[in-house]
Design a protein around this nucleic acid. Structure first.
Length: 231
DNA sequence: AATGATTTCAACCGCATGACC
DNA sequence: GGGTCATGCGGTTGAAATCAT
């Protein structure tokens, strides 16, 4: 399949945004919103492609962007979530209000990456993180985010791309699992999440906690665990 | 002060996915 | 069912800033 380019290559400006361009984009979005990014630059009178406008808005111009240094709490949150989720920056960003996936990704590569190797956590700690995720989701009515199946029995240390045979070849169809079939879990699953689920057999799990824990541990076996354990 | 090395981060690129026709 | 479009995501790049010598 031949894809058309996301924007006209000819005449589309690249490189750093000027304050004037920023102002045009902000004014336009404040007046008309951003229903169609592809059409936006033409309508707003910007010599940029829609993709560039979208990125500029999301990563820099949005009014709710929190700028400045990361707090200790934010740092810890990123570290913990990364252990569970891997390089799923947008999922991590969703839990840090005002921070963008790009910002977190940059911060990770420039500041936090070095700490990863010397800071592996135990399965018990992973379990704690999963509990925290689930409880925060229950409290906020947010969607439970899906960790990737890339852990080892030593604790999660690999990224998906570092994991051989991941995702499994047998799970290549894009299968959505409706929330009604997965009590306690909202939303759809990505293919690789389904792959993880297929591996550990969801039916063997008695609760959400166990389900996530099994995914994290990349285990085909059920484990004994009670939701809210330790409380 | 000069300069080369390293770090930071905004922006770009290519790919995946879902929606629509 | 297949093609196209629109969007979102993660990886990468490269210019600017900062640091070390």
């Amino acid at each position: 399949m031949v894809r058309t380019p996301c924007c006209e290559k000819m005449g589309s400006k690249k490189g750093p945004w000027t304050p004037e361009e920023d102002q045009i984009l902000i004014s336009f979005i404040q007046r008309f919103g951003h229903g169609n990014w592809r059409a936006l630059p033409k309508q707003a009178g910007l010599m940029r492609c829609g993709k560039s406008c979208r990125l500029r808005w999301i990563n820099y111009l949005r009014p709710d962007i929190k700028r400045g240094n990361f707090s200790k709490d934010e740092e810890e949150t990123i570290l913990k979530l990364h252990r569970v989720l891997g390089n799923r920056w947008s999922t991590i960003a969703a839990r840090l209000p005002g921070r963008t996936d790009n910002e977190i990704k940059n911060y990770w590569h420039s500041h936090l990456k070095k700490r990863l190797k010397q800071n592996l956590i135990s399965p018990k700690q992973q379990c704690d993180i999963v509990q925290a995720l689930i409880h925060s989701d229950h409290n906020s009515n947010a969607t439970i985010h899906k960790p990737v199946c890339n852990s080892t029995h030593q604790g999660i240390q690999n990224h998906p791309q570092d994991t051989p045979n991941f995702p499994p070849k047998s799970c290549n169809e894009s299968t959505d699992i409706a929330s009604e079939n997965l009590p306690g879990i909202e939303g759809k699953y990505e293919t690789r999440d389904f792959a993880a689920m297929e591996k550990m057999n969801y039916e063997n799990c008695s609760n959400v906690m166990e389900f996530w824990y099994n995914i994290l541990m990349n285990s085909g076996n059920s484990i004994e665990m009670q939701e809210n354990s330790g409380h």
